[in-house]
Design a protein around this nucleic acid. Structure first.
Lengths: 155, 155
DNA sequence: GCATTCATACTCGGATATACTCTGTCCGAGTTCTGCAGG
DNA sequence: CCTGCAGAACTCGGACAGAGTATATCCGAGTATGAATGC
């Protein structure tokens, strides 16, 4: 899995606590990561419609939806792509003893199992929102975190 | 996800229905895939202890355990590695406003969510055995499939 | 006819090239703020 | 003092290299078979 997913999720949590638009370089500096590469992933979020970008001197990124309407799954799919991890190549239709296409009216058992597992994975990610993550931050490192963040963003 | 996972699973299903050892080239020919590359993945299964290899003229691969004791998760982890897909880099400890290591007594919320999703994925794969897959094959393409397979392997 | 020996053919296993995606970077297009000149 | 304008600085967006991993391949080590040979 792409490491940019982690960056994107953390950035969304920060954006949910910011008052106005936050530029990409500021987000990168806050997390101590590469400015230019983070910008690439933020572009992916923008293409997916999760964040809205404004240009100009006071521009930056803003969450388009309320934090409790943005799921972790949304972010993961936006950054890593929405294609399933497992792609069935139908090898049962190859070789000297093939199961003809007419006999394969539904996906083979292997594909069904992998698909079900991916659905379970997605369902688990869909249950958690950015708002939930923000709450967990305050629970983990203290309630003063986000006010300090806002101060740092303003200064 | 590696495409070799699909190959390995199908090969395990075939091995569960074979009477004796099956050589890697035979498995590759049956599925219409690369001989040498399949051999590499079978080596992974051998290292993981899922299959046992015998050399010599009548050698080949055999399942070490009964088919109903081999889960799809076992095969996936053997081929793709057992490391989790998501690796937390603890970027909350970076930047100008870091959450010190002393405040991070447990994994951050993001890591917890990703870990839970991966657990759900693994649990789903662990529920299905090679025996279940073999049963689904007979249900999908007919009961005469495996006898024909055994005939082809013998011939 | 039977045991022994040897050549052989077949198997697996690891070491070796290539293609593709992820990672990281750079520069151009566009927009807003700010300073200044003029009325 | 207010308004209009021009410049500049800052922003995003897409196009451009490098590294790591998945893909594909080859050849060497080892073993059971089978035939040939000697008794």
């Amino acid at each position: 899995m792409s490491a940019g997913v982690e960056w994107a999720i953390h950035c969304c949590v920060v954006l949910s606590q910011a008052d106005g638009p936050v530029p990409a370089p500021r987000l990168a500096e806050f997390h101590g990561i590469s400015r230019t590469y983070l910008a690439k992933h933020l572009q992916a979020l923008s293409r997916a419609g999760l964040v809205s970008s404004t240009e100009g001197r006071v521009g930056g990124y803003v969450l388009t939806r309320p934090a409790d309407r943005v799921t972790v799954l949304d972010i993961v799919l936006a950054v890593d792509g929405s294609e399933p991890a497992f792609r069935c190549t139908e090898i049962r239709q190859n070789g000297p003893l093939p199961a003809g296409p007419e006999a394969c009216t539904r996906p083979c058992g292997v594909a069904r199992v992998m698909h079900a597992a991916e659905q379970a994975w997605r369902a688990s990610l869909k249950d958690v929102t950015v708002a939930d993550l923000a709450e967990s931050v305050t629970a983990d490192v203290g309630a003063g975190t986000f006010p300090a963040l806002r101060d740092w963003l303003a200064g």
